[in-house]
Amino acid sequence: MGRLKDKVAVVTGGASGFGEGMARRFAEEGAQVVVADLNAKGAERVAGEIGNGAIWTRSDVSQRSALEEMKDAALKAFGRIDIMVNNAGFTHRNGDMLEVDEETFDLITAVNMKAIYHAALAVVPVMEKQGGGVILTTASTAGLRPRPGLTWYNASKGWAITATKSMAVELAPKNIRVNCLCPVAGETGMLARFMGEDTPEMRAKFHASIPLGRLSTPLDIANAALWLASDEAAFITGVALEVDGGRCI
């Protein structure tokens, strides 16, 4: 306990799935947490269940103003931001890349890509003034070993991985570490979209592609995020950590 004592963490997409797992795990290890999500009721629920040391914000990460408001809420409540987790994500349904409409494509790029830019504009000056910090993005194995049927999602996660590495190099002199997680498909609200349909047969197909034989869980991702966010990983920056049961081997 206490691996994030005196740290303040902001987690987007914190109302469910991987984000909820990270928010809860960070709080268990002593962090004060901002649970940010477009789903205000879900964010309020998670923050309420965490209790003291957690607040929530309704945040549409595709909008620059929302990220600024999220930053301001964190600073007003806790006075600093040590850890910024870009976890909110969106995908199209598994299928023909030519059948993804432009509105869906634009939303994927706004949430999976542009939100990282918005977050950097908001928190990097704060972290630099403090003397350092951690930026962590939930990317995907899709950005490393793309599956057919998720072309535009795959591309957005490849972008996130490259952005992570470039940001890490540029921000290292400011003592800001930048890493990303690459989970394999997990038990989250987007699973059915990833698979195309959520059936026992489709799950079996996905399980068969993962050497450890199961999907990822929010706790798997949260534990990996905890390490990267903690001082135990003080010399780790620019990595795309595979949390995938061997999928990318």
Rank of each mutant, 00 (worst) to 15 (best):
R3S: 05
K5C: 00
D6M: 00
K7R: 14
V8N: 09
E20N: 10
A23R: 13
R24L: 09
R24M: 07
F26Q: 10
F26R: 09
E29Q: 13
E29S: 07
A31W: 06
A31F: 07
A36W: 06
A36K: 04
D37A: 07
D37R: 02
N39R: 14
R45Q: 14
E49A: 12
N52P: 08
S59C: 15
D60R: 07
Q63G: 01
R64N: 01
S65G: 09
E69I: 03
M70G: 05
D72Q: 13
A73C: 08
K76H: 11
G79D: 09
I81E: 06
V85H: 05
N86F: 11
A88F: 14
G89A: 14
T91S: 15
H92I: 04
G95M: 10
G95V: 03
L98N: 14
E99S: 15
E99C: 09
V100T: 15
E102G: 05
E102K: 12
I116C: 00
H118N: 15
A119M: 05
V124R: 02
V126R: 10
K129Y: 03
K129D: 12
K129T: 12
Q130H: 01
G133F: 06
L136T: 08
A139V: 00
T151P: 00
W152V: 09
Y153A: 02
I161G: 00
K165C: 01
E170K: 09
E170H: 08
V178K: 07
L181V: 09
L181P: 08
V184A: 14
M190F: 02
M190G: 01
M190A: 09
L191E: 02
A192W: 05
R193S: 14
R193Q: 13
M195L: 15
G196R: 01
E197Q: 14
D198P: 01
T199P: 10
P200Y: 06
M202C: 03
K205R: 14
F206I: 15
H207P: 01
L212P: 00
L212A: 02
L212T: 15
R214H: 11
R214C: 08
S216W: 03
D220W: 07
A225L: 12
W227P: 06
L228N: 13
D231N: 14
D231C: 07
E232R: 03
G238Q: 05
G238N: 07
V239T: 15
D244K: 00
G246Y: 02
G246I: 05
R247M: 10
R247T: 00
I249S: 10
